[in-house]
Every structure is written in structure tokens, then in C-alpha cells.
Simulated scan of single mutants.
Amino acid sequence: MRYDFRLPIIVAALLVVGLMTVSTAALAPRVSSGIFQKQLLGLALSALPIALLWWAGRDRVYRVAPWLYGLALVLQASTYVIGKDVNGQQNWIVLGPVQFQPLELLKLALIVMLPLVMRGGYRGLRSYLAPLAVFLPAFGLVVVQDFGGAMVLGIMFVAILLVFRMPLLHLLALLLLVGATFPTVIFPHLKPYQQSRLTIFVDPYQDARGQGYQVVQSIIAVGSGGMMGKGYKQGTQSHNGFIPEAPTDFAFATWAEEQGLVGGVLVLLLYGGLIWGLAGMASGSPRLQDQLLFAGVLGQIGFQAIENIGAALSMLPLTGITLPLISYGLSSLIMTLTTLGLAYVVYRDRFEKMI
């Protein structure tokens, strides 16, 4: 059996960028000095679920999808009772020294569960009943607490629907529905800080010391990096604490300050290569069920990368979405690597007869 090593090489390169970014962000004030060691721990722990997926194979993963989905829903619902508040969002679970975000598991569960119930393809309006029954409970649990996370789930679902071969008219109707309900129903019920995040990016300098402070500092950091950057661990904006959430929300700004335009373009090329590789895997998979899974992976990773980098450059609203494989966070790192490992296993088994 021949393996395509291009995807693992790109992932490894992004992980190196992430480790460099986290290690330099750890030098900033009010940032835990142990985050680099924790990120290394997350990288090591990722080997366990990836090895399990490699052993299980595509068919076993699909068979356990309902159980994984049920577990993810229960954990996400439990955050309303035992969740820990982090940055105004009560969506973390803490069990002794272990702290994780159930949303990351829920993303993976949907990526596996939705293709399972949509494998027959579009066959009329009734074809939407099963996917909506799977998606809406998950979306409803997330949107109340984490609007950024809900956006990721929504984009994943739309990406899967596109590969599901939904009629263009239905897609236009969906876009009109979202366009009509967001400003009238969803936006008024968001928390004030969430509303400001969605609007301040248009002109962050109108409130540079208030709601626009984070984005303004990010722009300054990126611009100060120039063409070649200030050098590894030589960033002044990040090390002096001007870049807020330097290891997470603004990891790209932290990287670009030290590595400059060249480093920033390198990251964009790496993500472009990752997305291109996943799209190639999808097109090379003969079964619709596997294609739907790749669509979910592409929707998640592609949107998170675009949204995080766009927010750092004040081109998109700031939603607190992490940069895949680069931002600090054990839950995000482990589940992103697990998701990519799943995609690789599905591609490996694409020609095998399904049980």
C-alpha cells in the first residue's frame, strides 16, 4: 500500500510554526510560562487517538459514530451545569488537573455522524430530516455559549450540504434565511462584547483604547514585523504584553511580528497546501460518504484558519476562533490532529469494501 506523505509534511510544518509561536508567546507577561511544555504534551497525547484510528480503520469509526455523537452531546450539555467560565464563556469542563473543551469533540463527532446519515445523497426534501436532526441539537447547545464555535459548526454543515448535492435553489434559500434571521433574531440576543466584536473590525480605530484595542494592537504587531520580521523571540509587541491572547486568538500576529511578511505568507501557503491536499483526497474517494467527511474537515480547518488570520488583520470579525495546529490549546491541538488523522485513515481505506 502506498501512502501520500505530502499531507503529514505540511501538518508537521504547521506544528513547528505553532511550537515556535507558543514558545515566544510564553515570554509575554500574564502568560503562563508552562504553555510550551503543555503544547508539547498535547502533541504527544495526540499520538494515542491517531494510533487508535489507524488500527480501527474507516468502517469501525463509522460504526461507533452514533456513540461518539451521543457522548459529545452529553459533555457539551454538561457545561451548562459543571462548566468552567473562561473569558466569559462557560464551555470548559475541569476534572482535577484535566481541562478540556467538549466543543472540539463535538466537531469531530459531527464530521463522522453527518456523513453516516447522509450517505444516500440528496433524494428530495425528506433527505434533510436526518442531517437536521443531528446538526440542530449540537448547534443549539453551542450557539448559546460560544458564537464563534457555532459559526464553525455552521460552516462545516454548509460544506457537507454542498457535497451532498443539494439543489442550488435550496442553497440560496438557506443563505437568505441566515441573512434574514441573523440581524433580526441572533444578533440582538448576543452579549454586548460579542456584538462589538462583530462590528468593530470595520474600523477598530474608532475605539482604539476600548473594544478595538485587541485588533489595533494586532495590526501594529503585524506591521512592525516588516518584510523579514524582528527575529525569533525578538518580538516587542508580544513580549511587552501589547498583543492580547498572544498564544491563542492572535497567534498569527505573534508569528508575523517575528517572521515578517515572508513568514506570514509561508503560513498562508502551508494552509493552502493543506486545504488543497484534503480537497484532492476528497476528489480521489469514490464513496459519497467519505467525500462528505472530507467536506466537514475542510469546512472546519479552512474556516478556522481564514477567520483567525482575517481577524488578526482586521479583515473579519474577532470571534475567538483558534488557528488550527498553531494556537495554544491542548483540546484544540489534540482534536485537530485526530481529525486530520481520521481523514488520512479514510483516504487509506477508500477502496476497501464497506462492511
Rank of each mutant, 00 (worst) to 15 (best):
P167A: 07
L342Q: 00
I160N: 01
L27S: 11
G235A: 06
I355G: 04
A256Q: 06
F5R: 11
Y347R: 04
M354R: 14
P8Y: 06
D207R: 09
S283M: 10
L177N: 00
M166A: 14
N87A: 10
G310F: 08
P244A: 12
L14D: 04
Q259P: 00
V61R: 01
F294N: 00
Y122L: 06
A343I: 04
I200V: 15
L323S: 03
S224V: 07
V98M: 15
A295D: 05
G124A: 13
R63Y: 00
Q90M: 15
V16M: 11
Q211R: 14
R2V: 10
P244T: 08
Q89W: 02
Y62D: 00
L40M: 13
F294T: 03
V143Q: 11
F147I: 08
S46C: 10
A51T: 13
V262M: 08
Y80Q: 10
I334V: 15
V98R: 14
M156F: 08
A246F: 06
R209W: 10
G273R: 05
A256I: 04
T24C: 02
L136Q: 10
G299Y: 03
K230V: 00
L198G: 02
P137A: 14
S224Q: 08
Y80A: 14
V142L: 05
L298M: 15
L43A: 15
F303P: 00
F242D: 01
L269M: 14
Y128W: 09
P317C: 07
L110A: 02
G260E: 02
E245L: 14
L27A: 14
Q99F: 07
E352V: 11
M228H: 12
D4Q: 13
A13T: 09
L53N: 01
G329P: 04
L153D: 02
V265Q: 11
K191V: 01
L27I: 13
Q195M: 10
R60Y: 04
A343P: 00
F303T: 07
I306V: 15
L325S: 06
F157N: 00
P286W: 13
L95D: 08
S238T: 15
L68Q: 03
V22D: 06
L125K: 13
E257D: 09
S238M: 12
I326D: 02
L125I: 12
P317V: 05
Q300R: 09
A180G: 15
Q304L: 06
P97E: 12
A26S: 15
